[in-house]
Amino acid sequence: MKFFTKHLTKIIVATMMLISPLMVIAQEDPGPEISNKALEGKRVVLMPMAMGFDLAQGWAHYIGREVRYWGGIFETRDPNWSVEAGSQALTDVIASRPDVIIVHNPDLRSYVKLFKRAQEAGIYVIQIDNRSAFNTDAFIGSNWEKLGELEATAALRFCGEGTSGKIGLIQGEQVNASSIDQYNGIMNIIDANDSVEVVSKPYSGWDATKAQEVTTTMLQQHPDLCAIIDFWDGTATGTAAAIRAAGKTGQVRLITTGGGEEVACKMLNEGTIDAIVSTEIPKQSQAINATIKTLLQSGMPAGTMQLFLYTHEVVTTKDDIYPGFCWSLEKNAADTRDNT
């Protein structure tokens, strides 16, 4: 006891020293632990319409990089433009119980039942780019109607005084949300302006060769068009080829939309296309990444929220692009190679 009283101060100091680090920890940021607990080891599966095209490669790169960064597992599925293969793949994915599924819809209806099943199984479902008729935890992509309005506004700029005011549309597919909504948006603007009219609106079926063929016929029929709005930059190469073959480059102005890959910037610079409304895949992917983390940390059962996160988009012409505006598939591929 004597020993105890004699060394009381020392004991207090020693005890303080032992406890103090714990006290410091208690004051530290609890965030990382909460985040880690919610995210680590979680499985995220991305299924675009096909893996091989620029948008899908972009999403896979930016989302995959982030998921791996926080210790999750990232997988992709490739239905290669086939709705049947997509349904099959999605069914298998749901059975394997991942934590988050990200789907790029081919149309309004095909995957609706599977989305319901996934959410019932406790899997968060994020739809990207193309909406479906069923609202899941989140939709992230373009407000296609707004995007169509932006395209039409660009067309108005090219179809001012002294032009015919005639506009042609190269639509995608009649069953596809991005195509239908884009059309509605364009018509909102065109109908409100008496100086312009849509004189022809064929479909490309998202095929560049078909786009070239229908544009050839369209230009034959309406040689005085002032602008064509093509619903995708993937088919705009075909539309541009038809305009070039008709000797009307610079006269028939071409407006389109796409993910903002380098090729789009090149086409703008060369004057192959005159304006683009870019859906800016890197920015869009950031929103997707934030949503994945939010959903996983929320602790809410799948299907509780119905978020709609629309990408901020603007009309971009040759004069608006700056170095780094477009992203590069090639550079992304090189990054992936270097980091694995």
Partner: peptide, 9 residues
């Protein structure tokens, strides 16, 4: 004619 080839064909 298109100066590119999209295998989506």
């Amino acid at each position: 004619t298109i100066l590119s080839l999209n295998t989506r064909i």
